[in-house]
């Protein structure tokens, strides 16, 4: 088949570049002159460039949020998106790990998230003399209800409201871009198919047709 030949050629040309190219060796030498000996060769995942893979590996190795902070995020994200009869909770979908990574990827989130968590613990201490992770679920809701509704929250909680809004947004994005969240929405795409138009019953529901 012609197409198979085509694909074979592609493999050859890209392989050829890596193996045969004297310049590739020269490029490596150039990179090694930075003084730092190269660590074990980085595996570049499909779809990533070398620079991107290096940046990802660096971010993965970085530790920013500590265990207590991550525990607090887990509790908070499950208050925002709990399990229900249709799907699992935020933490079950991996939201904690997502937030752990994204604050390193977008450093401008570091202080709002860390500071917000401190605000939450200090508020919890003020009300219940314990950290947010140590109080009862009902006590947690007592605090959350004061910061979850931007339009009716008291002014004194405005910083907490901002933090909770950020956590709601991060949790929703993390959840609905996970396998569990995508299945919850029922998204049916990202797979080879044939588009034949809007289903007839849907057209009827909205009083539309393809004949107009």
């Amino acid at each position: 088949m012609k197409r198979r030949d085509y694909l074979k050629n592609i493999g050859l040309s890209s392989l050829g570049l890596a193996v045969l190219n004297p310049d590739a060796r020269a490029m490596e030498q150039l990179e090694n002159t930075n003084g730092v000996p190269k660590a074990a060769a980085l595996k570049i995942p499909g779809g990533r460039t070398k620079d991107e893979a290096e940046r990802d590996a660096k971010l993965m190795a970085e530790v920013f949020l500590n265990k207590h902070e991550l525990d607090t995020i887990t509790i908070l994200s499950d208050i925002i998106i709990p399990a229900d009869k249709k799907s699992g909770s935020a933490s079950q979908s991996g939201v904690t790990g997502f937030i752990e990574f994204i604050v390193k990827d977008k450093p401008e989130l570091k202080t709002p998230v860390r500071g917000g968590l401190r605000w939450l613990d200090s508020e919890s201490n003020r009300r219940f003399s314990k950290l947010f992770t140590q109080i009862t679920p009902a006590q947690r809701i007592n605090i959350v209800d004061d910061i979850a509704y931007p339009e009716k929250a008291k002014k004194q909680f405005s910083q907490g409201v901002n933090f909770f809004t950020l956590m709601r947004n991060l949790t929703a994005t993390g959840f609905y871009t996970s396998r569990i969240g995508i299945d919850d929405l029922g998204y049916k795409g990202n797979t080879p198919n044939e588009w034949k138009g809007v289903p007839a019953d849907v057209l009827k529901q909205y009083g539309l047709s393809y004949d107009d």
Partner: peptide, 22 residues
């Protein structure tokens, strides 16, 4: 080359990116 697995991102899911594609 969009058909070379080294470069393909087509049909990947958002959770295949640690930053969910941002």
């Amino acid at each position: 080359d969009p058909a070379d697995p080294k470069y393909i991102t087509q049909l990947k899911w958002p959770y295949e990116s640690p930053r969910r594609g941002t």
